[in-house]
Amino acid sequence: MAALMLLFALLGGPGASDPLAEAQERFQALTSYRVTVRLNAEGSEQHVLRYFYRKPGWVRIEFIRPHPGLVLIYNPASRRVRIWPFGLNHLPRLNLAPDNPLIRGPHGIRVDQSDIGVLLDTLREWQARGTLAALGSGEVAARPVAGFEIREGGRGSRPARITTGSGWRATTCSRCGSSASGLEVVCSRASTWPIWRSTRPSPSASFLPEPKRAMAAANCFHLTTLWQFDAPLAAVWDAIVEPETWPGWWPGVEQVVTLERGHEEGGLGTRQRFVWKGILPYRLSFVSRVTRLEPLHLLEGRVEGQLEGVGRWRFNEDAGQTRVCFDWRVRTTPAWMNLLAPLAQPLFRWNHRLLMHAGGVGLARRLGTRLAFQTTWSS
Rank of each mutant, 00 (worst) to 15 (best):
G87Q: 11
F63Y: 14
S78W: 05
F86L: 13
P68N: 04
V48E: 11
P56V: 05
D99M: 05
P92Q: 09
V118D: 03
I61A: 02
R110M: 13
G108Y: 10
R80W: 03
P106N: 07
H47W: 14
P101T: 07
S78V: 05
I116M: 13
L70Y: 00
G87T: 11
I116E: 04
R80F: 04
R79N: 11
H90E: 14
H107Y: 14
D112E: 11
P56S: 06
L94Y: 10
P76T: 06
R104Y: 06
R60Y: 01
T122H: 13
P85T: 04
V111E: 00
Y74Q: 08
N89Q: 13
P85M: 02
E45G: 14
Y51W: 09
L91Y: 06
P68Y: 02
Y51L: 03
A97C: 08
N100P: 09
V111G: 00
R79Q: 14
S114V: 03
A97T: 13
Y74E: 06
N89C: 08
L49M: 13
H107N: 15
L120R: 03
E45L: 07
L102D: 04
P66R: 03
E45N: 09
L91H: 08
V81R: 02
D112C: 07
I83N: 02
V111P: 00
F63S: 13
